[in-house]
Design a protein around this nucleic acid. Structure first.
Lengths: 206, 206, 206, 206
DNA sequence: AATGAATGAGGGTTCATTCAT
DNA sequence: AATGAATGAACCCTCATTCAT
């Protein structure tokens, strides 16, 4: 086998995996883990059922791969975006913006993250909460720095405040996605940010 | 059949239904609808599988009955609690407090509410969103009154602000429940309220 | 316990059994054995399910009791009717007439007889074909006598001719009952008799 | 997929369907619809339970497919056989012969036809009585022609006479099958025909 | 490498039968 | 004697997974 063949083979493998993951993300987020059939994923991907099993050990593996890929993407985007800014508060704003934009684009992913926690609690917590909070940790650092600089109320515990922020965002995206735009997206985003910031900022910054 | 027998029969039915609903709530919230087995519910309730089907038409009926009961309880408690207070802001605080206490006691319920939206979107939205927002509508009224009295920023749209509040609370409870009390409940409650209120109140009230 | 009590008790038992058998006949003939639920029989009889089991060992016993009762009634009626006539051919005609009238009145019974033969082949053949053919045997005798008297073609085997007659009648009643009077009852009866008799009688009797 | 593959696939499908239908016909006629287990059919066909469901939507579909196939076969055979003869009476005799031969070969089918009328009354009557009487209509035409030619008594209504003929045949086959050949088939055939014909033919043809 | 036919464990649901009241 | 609540065996059907082609 020539080297170019190996490369081609590797390309094919990656291409197939992406092809399957893309479809699977859509289906899993629409139906949840248990109600999703491998058949449907294969069909929508234009592949045979057996082929899916060539690229993923089983249904669980496929599901967890989606979570994995999502978390990695999200983390990378948020960290990159924060690196672009200098000021702590700007970094936080940018993080929020990026976070929201990510899910605006991949809105179905929020349901995969939220849906099946219980089913895979043990397994997901290893992947999800460890990796997920990689970028959250970075935000925490920034938050602390902002407190040191006197920009944010000192009595607020960073971990908690960020957990609440994340939860607000998650739940907002989830509900928004779920209810089919009960309230407008952009309008709500600014309101959330305003509520959050007007609340956490010291009086002098207002 | 004597009257006392009828009463007894009614009692038994209610008792059995409660017995089953209690167990089912626990199991459904742990595993989600599709992954829950009726067998397990029956077993944990100390009953035979067939008995569950005496009291609930099928698995779906059982699930929706849980949602129903939960929503009714929640609505009643929140409305009663709000009625106890005179001042609008106190009413809102009381509503938040009651809402949180309800889920502190029935924490698993939040997962039933959130979990299976997609599976039952049509059906649940009739029950859930209609009844659920019965008390939310009441809060909205209070919110508007508070705006008229100059207690809350006028530029904030009540519907949206309350949706965000509800989402914050839901997601907070959900995450709190999910992660196994990563952060303390009572501590977070006051923080949420503080963030929310400090943000929405006019300067003069601070 | 006084004797009158014993009598009363026996009466009650018989009354209950008749009450149940009457309903059961209707339901079994409408739905067949396997698709009939004991619950429905009990309900329609205005009794509790458990009561049915006090009077019949199980579902099978109930079903076979219907067959039993039907066969006994039929046999008695046919034999009595034949006894009323003197001439062999009149006896046969009377038998046919009685047979048809019986099922005209208890049309549903034919389905019970025909329906579940396979299910109970072994058991029913003992009851059904033994007892059923008790009156058939009587007809056979008459048939032979008619042959001896030169009234019926001698080359026809009595057993076979009667089997065919019985089958014609059974099938006619069954189909008539099943299709809901596709063709008129009385009209067809006379035609059957005519075809059958015109066929079996010697030329000189025509 | 190559064309030969498509052909193979089609062959396999047809082969499997036949394989299952053959077994199912036997089992359904022995036990009736409700008492038949899909498991048993699968087992006797040397297939897994799931495979049966690949080829038939459900138990009902399988059952009705049997009825369908049977009716189509019977109709085709009878019509072909009648076409071979010129004279009306010969056509009728041929139809009777073919009808009997068909059920001699597929004797169990008669029970499937007769058994579950109640269960599927609506559905079967559409398939059964519409298609079934397709060839019966043809016989009716022939019957009328024979009357015009003076071969059959004019006072007999064709529809009724044929219904009775069909019933005689059905019931004869059914009973013959049921009782395990209590009387010989071929012998009875000629007797039936003789009885039927000697009865319906005008004197001059005797 | 790709396929999809075949499989059977698994789970929802029914209903004959039992038994405490 | 009568009841009907409780039960669990039985049976239909689905779908993740395997494997021969």
């Amino acid at each position: 086998m020539k080297i170019t063949d190996k490369v081609k083979k590797k390309d094919l493998t990656q291409m197939r995996q992406k092809q399957i993951l893309d479809v699977a993300t859509r289906v899993f987020s629409k139906k949840g883990f248990a109600s999703t059939q491998v058949d449907e994923i294969a069909g929508l991907a234009g592949l045979g059922k057996g082929t899916v099993y060539r690229y993923f050990k089983d249904k669980k593996d496929l599901f967890l791969s989606i979570v994995d890929r999502g978390i990695r993407n999200l983390k990378d985007l948020v960290l990159e975006a924060m690196a672009e800014e200098k000021e702590p508060l700007d970094k936080i704003k940018k993080a929020i913006e990026t976070y929201l934009k990510f899910f605006e684009k991949h809105s179905y992913l929020i349901r995969v993250f939220i849906h099946e926690q219980s089913e895979f609690q043990k397994r997901i917590q290893k992947r999800y909460y460890q990796h997920y909070y990689e970028h959250v940790n970075k935000i925490e650092e920034v938050f602390k720095k902002a407190q040191t600089l006197g920009l944010i109320k000192k009595k607020i515990k960073p971990k908690l405040a960020i957990a609440i922020l994340t939860d607000m965002l998650n739940s907002f995206i989830y509900t928004w996605q779920l209810t089919g735009q009960k309230y407008s997206l952009s309008e709500s985003f600014s309101l959330i940010t305003e509520i959050y910031f007007t609340g956490i900022l010291e009086e002098k910054d207002k």
